[in-house]
Nucleic acid binder design. Structure first.
Length: 366
DNA sequence: GAAGTCTCACCATCCACAAGATGCA
DNA sequence: TGTGCATCTTGTGGATGGTGAGACT
């Protein structure tokens, strides 16, 4: 199993397939075995015995997905191979300022978001000893780095977002935990069990980086339900949005060249914690007519993706928003309702209930 | 120092959720 | 009487938006 050389795996445009199961895309490279493994096989093989569990593995490069990562870019929060690192961080003087550190090998069980692992954060949420102080210093460098990059982007035409640049890659981690794992699951469960807009405090799937685009996309998905897996392979790989019956940032679809489109929705599997079972089923079907994506396209997509992320406020409870908007205020602060207002409110509700037969909880589904 | 921009705390109310209490087989 | 399950009650904390104050450019 010698796979050290780049692009020696499967077709150039696709993520290298797992050397064990040959079906899923690899996520880690085991140095001891000289093997590229998917998360499922990695967990299976390296949990088999104590010796195997000590094998040091590294993440596969998040850009090309074909070579073991050699460095972690703190600013990008991404693990990159030497070639991608050179490509990305020699593009301009500001990119060269990104703080990169040699990739930290992973040992033991590989569960939990990759970001936490390759950023030196243990799965239990605690940072590794001795890294806290160092990270404080690094954070300053990062801030300088991406802020400067932002200012440059401002001069470019591709901007308009408050949080462009490098920091969004960190926020991807938040997205993953708060949106991918919880929100989407919750939404799916609610839709599955109750349907939309059943009058309760409905969760509004406004956006997780996609804004209204995602809402529109969701509506499309509801019209044409299907299981879909979206993985932002070129990004950090951690903003992994495994969604059922909804997904796919239309932003991506808008900017990624056609030649790369197929790859977007299929080329990847880096399942984070709790999602391995979800993807351990039948391997993804590769389309018969896929167009290989070269490195340039990947790097381009990687960069474009970072530029087009949106971070708008997410309204989780439309009813609360409605109540907040109708609530009396004093200098912007919520004020207590007067008795008169309460009475009027009750009268109104009584009238409505008499007419419709049931109460109404405001909901903002359009 | 002035002007413009940005960030954040504040407030009352609603509701999801968890824990405890209760009833029944 | 003890156990397990379902239902009800209660308490807690998060979410919500407009405004002003302060920090910052």
């Amino acid at each position: 199993m010698m796979n050290d050389e780049r692009n020696s795996g499967d077709g150039g445009g696709w993520a290298r397939s797992c050397d064990s199961c040959r079906s899923a895309a690899c996520t880690v490279y085991c140095r001891a075995d000289s093997a590229y493994l998917c998360a499922g096989c990695d967990g299976r093989i390296h949990a088999a015995n104590p010796v195997a569990s000590r094998h040091e593995r590294v993440w596969v490069c998040e850009v090309c997905e074909h070579a073991p990562a050699t460095v972690t870019c703190k600013a990008d929060a991404a693990a990159l191979c030497a070639v991608c690192d050179a490509d990305i961080h020699t593009a301009n003087p500001l990119a060269r300022r990104h703080h990169r550190v040699p990739i930290l090998p992973i040992s033991g069980h590989l569960f939990g978001p990759p970001a936490a692992a390759h950023l030196g954060i243990r799965p239990d949420g605690f940072e590794e000893a001795g890294e806290v102080q160092e990270q404080e210093e690094e954070e300053e460098d990062e801030a300088t780095s991406w802020l400067l990059l932002n200012s440059v982007k401002t001069n470019n035409q591709n901007n308009g977002f408050l949080y462009g640049g490098e920091v969004d890659e960190y926020l991807d981690l938040v997205e993953y935990t708060s949106c991918g794992e919880n929100q989407y699951q919750d939404e799916y469960n609610q839709q599955e069990n109750h349907g939309m807009g059943d009058g309760s405090d409905s969760v509004v799937p406004v956006q997780c980086g996609g804004g209204n685009d995602q809402l529109q996309e969701q509506q499309k998905q509801q019209q044409n339900p299907q299981m879909e897996i979206d993985y932002e392979a070129s990004n950090t790989g951690f903003s992994y949005t495994a969604s059922i019956s909804q997904s796919v940032s239309s932003i991506e679809a808008g900017i990624v060249p056609d030649a790369t489109m197929i790859d977007i929705s299929n080329s990847h599997i880096r399942p984070p914690k709790g999602t391995i079972e979800l993807f351990s089923g039948p391997p993804l079907q590769m389309p018969h007519q896929f167009i290989p994506m070269d490195r340039e396209a990947r790097v381009l997509r990687y960069r474009e993706k970072k530029k087009t992320r949106k971070f708008e406020k997410t309204i989780r409870y439309a009813s609360r928003k409605a109540y907040a908007e109708t609530r009396p205020r004093i200098k912007g602060r919520f004020a207590k309702r007067t008795d008169v207002e309460v009475e009027v409110d009750q009268m109104f509700n009584t009238t409505v209930m008499a007419e419709s037969g049931y109460g109404i909880v405001p909901s903002f589904y359009n």
